[in-house]
C-alpha cells in the first residue's frame, strides 16, 4: 500500500487518463453519422460505498466531469447513485465502471480505506405521495 499523498497523485493521473479517453469517445460519437451511432444511453442505479457528504459530492462531481456519464441524483439514505451513461452495453458494465472509479477515489480520499461495503441489493424506492411531499 502506497502512502497517502502518493495515492492521491496516482488517482489524479488515473482520472486524467479516463477524462481524456472519455472526451475522445464522446467527440467521436458526435462526429459519427447517425446511421453508425454506437450510442446506448441508460440510467442505472449504482450502489455506492461513499459515506460522508464530501465523499458523495466528490464522487458525483467526478462522474459528471467525465463526459458520457452524468449523475442525475443520489439517494444517501439507500446508498445509491443514479447515473446516466452514454455508452452502456449492460447494467453491470456501467455499475462496474462507476464502482471502480469510486473505489479508487475512496482509496485516495481516505487516510485508511475504512468501510468499503455497498448495499447488496437495490432497495425499492417508492415515489413520494402527493400529500406531505418534501423535496
Amino acid at each position: 500500500m502506497m502512502s497517502w499523498p502518493f495515492r492521491i497523485i496516482g488517482f489524479l493521473l488515473w482520472y486524467a487518463k479516463e477524462f481524456i479517453t472519455a472526451n475522445l469517445s464522446v467527440t467521436a460519437e458526435v462526429l459519427r453519422p447517425r446511421g453508425r451511432s454506437k450510442m446506448k444511453p441508460a440510467i442505472v442505479a449504482v450502489p455506492a460505498a461513499s459515506r460522508s457528504d464530501s465523499e458523495w459530492t466528490l464522487i458525483s462531481s467526478l462522474i459528471t466531469l467525465t463526459p458520457g456519464t452524468l449523475t442525475i441524483t443520489i439517494s444517501k439514505e439507500h446508498g445509491i447513485l443514479y447515473v446516466h451513461g452514454m455508452f452502456v452495453e449492460s447494467r453491470e458494465q456501467l455499475v462496474g465502471e462507476i464502482q471502480e472509479m469510486e473505489d479508487r477515489m475512496l482509496h485516495a480520499a481516505r487516510r485508511a480505506p475504512g468501510d468499503l461495503t455497498r448495499p447488496a441489493e437495490l432497495p425499492v424506492v417508492r415515489p413520494l405521495e402527493e400529500t406531505g411531499e418534501s423535496r
Partner: peptide, 28 residues
Amino acid sequence: MAIARAGYLNNALPAPITHIDELRLTRR
C-alpha cells in the same frame, strides 16, 4: 447535475433509445 436533476423533475423524459431507466421506478 443541477440541469439534469431539474429536467428529470420537470418531466423531461429520456429519449426512447435509452434502454434502461431505473430512476423511473421512483417517479410519481
